[in-house]
Structure formats: C-alpha cells, structure tokens
C-alpha cells in the first residue's frame, strides 16, 4: 500500500499517517495480521521524525487498530478485538461532526445518505 502525506497540510503528519492506515484497512488493502514497517523504516522512507511515526502508531494502538508487539513491530488487529469502549469513543467522535451537519442544515436523510455514499466508496475498491 502507498502512503502519501502532505507535509505542508494543516492536518498534522501523524494524523495523516493514521488516517491512511485506517482507510487502507477499511478498503482491504491491508489485512488483519499484516505488519506495518518499523518506526525507523517508515520515518526514514518519508524523511520525517521518528517521533511522528511513533505518535501515529500509539494513536492507532490506543484505538485498538494495531498491536505493538516488542521486537516484531506493529500488527493490524482483527475486528473481533474491538469492544464496547471503541464504540463509546466513536460515538464521542461522531458527535461534533453530526452536530455540525445539523447546524449547517442537513436533514437526517441527507446525513444517512452521505454516510452510505462514503461506505460504498470504501467498499468499492
């Protein structure tokens, strides 16, 4: 899988990295059980600080998406590893976005439609 970052973007690099890895898993380009490159290898490929990659990996680990195994690196988790706490966290993260959608005048139907468009887009590949 190709990871592409924009160093001059407003979104911090560590967030760009985790977003793309998550998207890669959702699209099925990366499978559960696959391993990610070591922090050093990934950082040197992109010419970014190792802290940046480390931060991204820890963010993914906190979300339960990867497991950091000492010596063997970062492994993608399988969906059954998720539990109630991930759902609670996602609910918290959906909240401001859905609230914003309502504020700008989207109807419930439009929001649901938008969500299914995004899901279809991800599943298509």
């Amino acid at each position: 899988m190709i990871i592409r970052i924009e160093p001059d973007s407003d979104i911090p690099i560590y967030e760009q990295l985790s977003n793309q890895i998550i998207e890669g898993i959702a699209r099925g380009v990366i499978q559960p059980g696959d391993s990610l490159p070591s922090v050093r290898a990934f950082a040197s490929d992109l010419g970014v600080n190792m802290h940046t990659v480390n931060k991204s990996y820890h963010l993914l680990e906190k979300k339960g998406i990867i497991k950091i195994v000492p010596k063997s690196g970062a492994i993608i988790s399988s969906p059954q590893d998720f539990n109630q706490s991930s759902l609670d966290r996602l609910k918290d993260e959906y909240m401001p976005l859905i609230a914003e959608s309502l504020v700008v005048g989207m109807s419930q139907k439009q929001i649901l439609e938008l969500v299914s468009i995004i899901i279809n887009d991800i599943k298509k590949n």
Partner: peptide, 12 residues
C-alpha cells in the same frame, strides 16, 4: 502543485 511524500508499506 501540492507537494507530497510517499512511502510503500510493502516495498521492503
């Protein structure tokens, strides 16, 4: 032009 950096996760 948007300046980007790329990495291939499986190239190794």
């Amino acid at each position: 032009l948007t300046q980007v950096k790329v990495s291939d996760l499986t190239v190794r």
